[in-house]
Design a protein around this nucleic acid. Structure first.
Lengths: 336, 336
DNA sequence: ATGAAAGCGCTAACAT
DNA sequence: ATGTTAGCGCTTTCAT
């Protein structure tokens, strides 16, 4: 099963290699319609399939972009990636995916492999642990865009949601419902602007509505946190919160499970807003209100931005594209 | 920002190109430890990164496999893909993803692009509409494995769940609960063995338990179906079903939404079993019992199989790997 | 309107 | 133990 190559169709057509190459690249300007027709037929007959690898070696372009995410499993990331793939496909780019689980070494390694593979650009959800390296890559000329993350020490283009505004709106929604003590559960947010902005939005809303900003209403969660312990902290506040605004969907789900276990009722006992959509929220005992990011659109815009960078050789400096969120009001917040 | 290439490190080290090449490929057998050391240092100093494209052109291998799925969005497919990626990464392969939405043309096009990209193998969830083409590709030497699908007219290796057995178990679970009239909702299953097997398992369980198999308890759903209409059909059966076994998670979710809308209660009014895990099922009003496929493992095994084919040049004929499912009993089935 | 030839960065057979 | 050299299958410049 020998692969047929360009020289085969050239020979059979009776023209030169370069003429066939011109044809394959759609440069018909100086080509007689006869040779054009002949090449077309021979190529079809021989079932010729161009070799992208050889082309890439010659052109130093691969029409391929690398996508580094923490974990493609799940609703959020997978639909971002789908947005990326759709946009890329439309523009004849393919995507190569790497999961890192936000592991620093894996992230480094992924970047390295993508460089060996000579991808034309990289889309990344950075862990925050290799920001220096990523800056370096960008400065050495690799087109690179980050998705739904923003770090103070990472100076690359980014596509994010309007975190501050949407956190503001969610908080104000709670305030309008009569809530005064609104607890927050968030991951560590120093240095991670995409998280910090949500806290700022929350603060803005309080202040603009004449409410005090109370630092001990802010609770930090991490992967090793025990929800039992964390929740104890929340309720031991002298001003018992009536509402909880949770900044990450994994935490929201954790909290909801905890509530179920402890027979805590939503919204009777607490009002809840989550950040990020929860799959099948509509089928829950109490459908939970969330701030929903436009995941698919984030993917599309990220792809658009990286292709722009690739093809316009980055006249633009670091750019920030901001996508609005939607407050999906369901049944987890009550008026008090 | 000139890229540094092998000849650069060769020159700087003072050895020949091929020695460096040997080094880069870990063939140290005939190499003095001094040159080895020297090359190592120079390569590091120069920050040399091998060019996979050039290597691929020379070796006719890309260390890359194509993954064609219907839609990476969602729990099921995304965790299969994660299994694939993890296994591939461990073996120094990268994956290129294409979504087709089971569109025949897109599927054809994806296969074609992956061939141009010279992937070493293809993992595919076939739509069923290009089986002839896929057979042809396989016969012309492309290593290719299908995931969690099986068609009567597609003769390629496959990694699937034990559909017949797990449908049997689920049905028998219902029977043991006292159910006699068990309705099925399935997609069209003629020719799609992975679907047909579930019906057979259902049938086996009925027969083995002395229950009649009643053809009008089997209902066909497709993407254009109206759940209202479909459900009317189900309940107009002279022997009103007390349980419904739904063969696809998208349908299960649809049905659950319908129930919520119509205030139909689970399991009081109907007992329900779904096929495929439903994200956040535990948080539902009534957590739904499902047959859970081992998605991650399916991905891993598929990757393992395709890499075997690639590296052992397929001594093996078409092979079928069968992964067990788990019946996740929750609260959607009652005893009657 | 078409062809000749150099080059893309590497591998691998062969020579030494 | 290391070097020489001929490809791998294309693109692209320059000639004609």
């Amino acid at each position: 099963m020998k692969r047929v190559k360009m020289s085969d169709v050239a020979k059979k057509t009776g023209v030169s290699l370069s003429t066939v190459s011109q044809y394959m690249n759609g440069r018909y300007e100086y080509m007689s319609s006869e040779t054009k027709e002949k090449i077309k037929n021979v190529a079809e007959e021989l079932n010729y399939i161009p070799n992208s690898i050889a082309r890439s070696l010659a052109t130093a372009k691969t029409k391929t972009i690398g996508v580094i995410v923490s974990n493609i499993t799940g609703y959020f990331t997978s639909s971002v990636v789908r947005g990326v793939e759709d946009y890329c496909k439309k523009n004849d780019y393919s995507i190569i995916i790497y999961n890192t689980d936000h592991d620093s070494e894996l992230e480094k390694k992924s970047i390295n492999i993508l460089k060996m593979l000579r991808v034309d650009g990289i889309l990344i959800v950075p862990s925050g642990k290799n920001n220096e390296l990523i800056n370096k890559e960008k400065n050495s000329g690799m087109p690179i865009v980050q998705m739904y993350m923003e770090y103070d020490d990472l100076d690359i283009s980014t596509v994010i949601s309007n975190y501050r505004k949407s956190a503001y709106d969610a908080t104000e929604y709670l305030i309008n419902l009569g809530h005064k003590n609104i607890a927050i559960i968030t991951q560590e947010y120093e240095n991670t602007r995409s998280r910090h902005d949500r806290i700022l939005g929350y603060k803005d809303a309080l202040v603009n509505n004449g409410l005090p900003f109370n630092r001990d209403l802010i609770h930090i969660w991490d992967i090793s946190s025990d929800m039992n312990v964390l929740f104890e902290e929340i309720v031991k506040n002298k001003n018992l919160p009536t509402a909880i605004f949770v900044m990450h969907s994994a935490i929201t789900i954790n909290l909801l499970k905890h509530f179920k276990l402890k027979n805590i009722n939503i919204p009777e006992d607490f009002s809840i807003i989550g950040f990020d959509e929860i799959p099948n929220a509509d089928l829950m005992k109490t459908p939970v209100t969330v701030v929903k990011q436009s995941t698919y659109e984030i993917g599309q815009k990220s792809a658009e931005l990286i292709l722009d960078k690739i093809n316009n050789k980055d006249k633009v400096k670091s750019k920030k594209i901001i996508i609005p969120c939607e407050l999906k009001i369901r049944e987890s917040c009550k008026e008090i």
